[in-house]
C-alpha cells in the first residue's frame, strides 16, 4: 500500500541523537559520507560501520526500521554487486567457465560496493528518522545562509522544501482515496499494456492535480493572511543553537574522517 512508504519518515524520540542541532547532524552526515567514500581498506570500513552502529544505538531507532528503509534499494545494490563481480579483473582467479571469469578482487569489490551503498542510505535514513522535516529545513537554511550573499533565495528554497515535505503524506493519502473512488467506478489501474496503463492513470492524475492546485491556492491565501512576506526580517519561535554536545559530536566526526584518511594512507 502507498501508505507504507517510509520516505522522509520521522520517528520522534528524546535521545542524544534526536537532541543534536540539525546543523550538526547535516554536517555529520556529510562527513560520514566523505569518510565512507574515502575508506578503501578494511580498517577504514570498520571505523565507518562502528560510527554508524554507535549512532543507531544512541538514537534507539530499531534496526528493523533501518532495514525496511533499505528494502526498496535491494535491486540497485544487487545490480551494482553483480556488475562489479563480473567486470573486475584481478590476479586471483576463482571461477572460470565459458567467457565468464570471477576474480577474488571482483568478489571483494562487489561486497564493498554493495556495503557502501547500503551504508550511505542507512546513514541518511538515520538523519531523517531522527530529525523532523521542519528542523531539517531550518538547519539547511541556516547552513546555506552564506549563499544569500550571491543572491541565492535560500529562505524561499527552504520554505519550498518544508512545504513539499509537509504535503507528501497528504498527497499520498489523497492518491489512495481517489484511486479507491475510481476503482469503485470500475477503473482498472493494473492490467493492460503501457499505453492502456498510462491512459488509465488520467482519472487519477487529473483530480490529484486539481486538488494539489486547490491546496496550493488555499495555502498561499492562508500564508498571506498571516502576513508572510518571505524571509526578510523573519524570526523563529525555536532558535537553533549549538550546545556542547554538538561540538563534541562534530569533533568525533572530524576525528573519524581523519582516521579514515590516515588508514588509507597507511594502507592497512
Amino acid at each position: 500500500m502507498l501508505k507504507d512508504i517510509t520516505l522522509g519518515q520521522y520517528y520522534p524520540g528524546d535521545t542524544l541523537v534526536h537532541r543534536l542541532d540539525p546543523r550538526t547532524k547535516l554536517i555529520l552526515t556529510l562527513i560520514y559520507i566523505a569518510a565512507l567514500f574515502t575508506a578503501i581498506v578494511y580498517a577504514g570500513y570498520a571505523l565507518v560501520v562502528l560510527f554508524l552502529a554507535v549512532s543507531i544505538l544512541l538514537s534507539r531507532i530499531r534496526l528493523r526500521n533501518i532495514l525496511s528503509g533499505l528494502k526498496p534499494l535491494i535491486i540497485i545494490v544487487l545490480i551494482t554487486g553483480i556488475l562489479n563481480l563480473f567486470y573486475t579483473k584481478g590476479e586471483h582467479l576463482l571461477v572460470h567457465f565459458w567467457r565468464i571469469s570471477i576474480y577474488w578482487e571482483g568478489v571483494e569489490t562487489a561486497i564493498f560496493m554493495a556495503l557502501r551503498i547500503m551504508l550511505l542510505i542507512a546513514g541518511t535514513l538515520l538523519l531523517t528518522y531522527t530529525t523532523s522535516p521542519l528542523q531539517l529545513t531550518d538547519g539547511l537554511e541556516s547552513l546555506l545562509n552564506p549563499l544569500k550573499k550571491i543572491r541565492v533565495p535560500v529562505h524561499e528554497l527552504a520554505m519550498m522544501m518544508s512545504i513539499a515535505l509537509r504535503f507528501i503524506p497528504t498527497l499520498i493519502e489523497e492518491t489512495d482515496k481517489i484511486m479507491s473512488a475510481q476503482r469503485a467506478r470500475g477503473a482498472d489501474f493494473e492490467t493492460g499494456g503501457l499505453i492502456a496503463k498510462a491512459k488509465a492513470m488520467l482519472p487519477l492524475l487529473i483530480p490529484l492535480f486539481v486538488s494539489a492546485f486547490r491546496r496550493a491556492d488555499e495555502l498561499a491565501t492562508a500564508m498571506e493572511s498571516r502576513c508572510y512576506h518571505g524571509g526578510e526580517g523573519r524570526t523563529r519561535m525555536k532558535q537553533l543553537s549549538m550546545a556542547r554536545r554538538d561540538w563534541i559530536a562534530l569533533a568525533v566526526g572530524v576525528l573519524l574522517l581523519a582516521l579514515v584518511i590516515l588508514f588509507r594512507r597507511l594502507g592497512i
Binding site: I178, A184, P207
Partner: peptide
Amino acid sequence: VRFRVGLLFQYPEYQLFEETVYRDIAFG
C-alpha cells in the same frame, strides 16, 4: 461486484476528472 455494489466516497466531488459532466457520469 464493483458494479453491482455502488460505493460513493466522502467528498466525491474531488474524484471528477473528465472534460464534460456527461463524460464523467459515463465513466462507470
